[in-house]
Design a protein around this nucleic acid. Structure first.
Lengths: 362, 362
DNA sequence: GCACTGATGGAGAGCGCTCTCCATGGAACG
DNA sequence: CGTTCCATGGAGAGCGCTCTCCATCAGTGC
């Protein structure tokens, strides 16, 4: 009985219309909840939908609405040559940027971004398309992907400040929102953290514990976040009578944190406090400190940044500056959907405040 | 000059055809590289494409080809009620399964899966759509998503063996490939690890080091992987004259590893070797061992499983059983694309062999 | 009682693309 | 030289949906 109402393949609007004894347009109106439809007819249509097992065909809908109802989540590096990924040492993976992918995804930070994005998108029936862009070719692919309407807009998380992708997207007149302010101004909205305030929190905490000989392991200084965290730490320290603070630049990796700590310890064996610009480096620093017979926090207090899973993997657990990554990612997504709803809306930025999480290490 | 060849919106096939002085069909043939087209005309078309800045409209193409050229990467739990996520303690996130999302993404294992999938997909110009399914409602959304043709198939990574999603997908006649064998047989291909062999490797290594009083922290025993790793370890030990091995069940979390280690140590203070069914639990075990004055590997040797980032965050770095997650994920993707190419191909399974990675902890 | 209004359903025109058919023309063959 | 055949380009029919018209009809005011 229901079978002769279906045509060969998946049921279409036409099939439902026939089953309900109305026109295609009316079914469409009911399905999309647009305009007034007589409650009785509405009910009949709904019944027909469930009898036929109808699901709207996305491609057909997209074709006429000119919206994909999908957005891209792009993780973007700054490489220029195809396959010239980041400065990773271990490029044993098989070609074409795979090491970049692996490196980014190994970072729990990225998982938190995805969490925030997904949590905002899910209640709205949308899902992110995951893309990577670390070469100029892959950047063009991202632009093409958006241009051909596969996604309505992009959330761009750059690993490098000099990332050219935001500008490319802006030039092409495509919708996007960035995580973190780009190095050069681009007419695109973004969310960011008040990195300096976070570093200030860390500095004040170390000072409050009585640390008098503190040092810092900074992030890469060509990244705004690395720069800002250093500046914030330095400024606060200076304001409290410590004009000179030993600094070693790290690369946000555990290994670089270890190396930096070795150097700091060699040059300043009497230090009693360390601020690392992220948790991974703080973790490495803790290991090195323990190897050198220093107890944490007894001899040396350590403060990290991010409140990533590394903070809890550390013994003692890290005191750290929490970046509300999930909230930032959700806001980024909100900004993008806003923009899609009102394409000529203003370009804005939303800056989040970090928070000190006190645990065992300081 | 180029402008009057374009119509208002994005350039279409029609525009390119007009610019090249050929028909729509010919442009389509050139763009899709199908059939023979005169080289001269081909060149003219290509020029027209670049002059107009043409990009094929995905929705229109999908509508006729009935392929989305996209696949879904679904992380699936086993919850029954909407929002009834996993047994996570910290459900302070805002409602609707967000804790599930956060929990899954915090696990570096997932990042490795994504890496493998993305690396296989990228050279083929495809990108995964990220979806989560931990409630019955969200499971239906996934099925609907596939049914409406938003994605051609699904890669399903279940966190629970009892996950009903694979069966739902199979019933609906949709294409999918699973990561790990489902608890009940489902006519769907999958990739998996020879978990027992991995546990055997761990057991043999501990025996080889001279450990005589070993214990194990198992994974959750309702998960096939947890079960198989325990069986493999036990069997190997039994075969070498150790018929009884202390076991405490863990939940694959660092915390549960710590608790399990506390219990083992209380009941068997003289143990000299521990096999933890994953690295996170091994990391927790190491912390507890050190707190109880045991050196690793001096007093107690510890072997983990997975070779995740936790293995390197540990001091000493963990000796562990490496699961080739990226390779498995790539193979899973290959199986799915194969199936899409030949929908009536056979249902297969591919089992990967693990490998022992010897580091400092054992 | 009649034009007028507002509410509601149907008809039909595309959206941009692929792909099957058909037309054309030159080469090859008897 | 006529016929067959293959190579190649064009015409056009949809794919399933939305949305703008338009038709219809009940209720309203004068």
């Amino acid at each position: 009985m229901t079978d002769d109402l279906r045509s060969a393949g998946a049921p279409t609007l036409e099939d439902v219309a026939r089953a309900a004894g109305v026109s295609r347009a009316t079914v469409s109106r009911v399905v999309n909840g647009v305009r007034n439809v007589d409650p009785v007819i509405q009910e009949a249509v709904r019944r027909a939908v469930s009898v036929t097992g109808y699901t709207p065909n996305r491609a057909a809908r997209s074709l006429v609405t000119r919206r994909a109802d999908a957005i891209a989540l792009v993780v973007s590096g700054a490489g220029v040559e195809p396959g010239a990924a980041e400065e990773s040492e271990d490029t044993t993976e098989s070609g074409d940027g795979s090491s970049f992918t692996a490196q980014v995804l190994a970072d729990p930070f990225f998982g938190r971004v995805v969490t925030g994005v997904v949590n905002y998108l899910r209640p709205r029936g949308m899902h992110p398309v995951l893309m990577f862009a670390e070469s100029s070719r892959s950047r063009e692919e991202v632009v093409a992907y958006l241009r051909q309407g596969s996604a309505d807009g992009a959330l761009v998380v750059s690993t490098h400040a000099e990332d050219p992708l935001p500008a490319l997207i802006a030039e092409a007149g495509l919708a996007a929102v960035l995580f973190a302010r780009p190095a050069r101004p681009v007419p695109v909205s973004y969310v960011d953290l008040a990195h300096q305030d976070g570093a200030r929190l860390a500095a004040e905490h170390l000072l409050g514990r009585g640390c008098r000989r503190t040092a810092t392991i900074s992030g890469p200084l060509d990244v705004p976040a690395g720069q800002a965290r250093l500046t914030g730490f330095r400024d606060t320290m200076a304001r409290h009578g410590h004009p000179y603070i030993p600094v070693v630049e790290g690369q946000f990796t555990q290994e670089s944190g270890e190396a930096a700590m070795e150097r700091l310890l060699a040059e300043h064996p009497d230090l009693d406090g360390v601020f690392a610009a992220n948790d991974l480096m703080a973790l490495g620093a803790c290991h090195v400190l323990r190897e050198h017979g220093r107890s944490v926090p007894g001899d040396v207090a350590v403060v990290g940044f991010d409140d990533s899973s590394a903070a809890l993997a550390c013994r003692p657990p890290l005191t750290t500056v929490r970046q509300p990554v999930e909230g930032m990612a959700a806001e980024m997504t909100r900004l993008l959907l806003d923009r899609l709803a009102r394409p000529d809306g203003p370009v804005t930025s939303v800056i989040f405040e970090p928070e000190l999480v006190v645990r065992g290490s300081a």
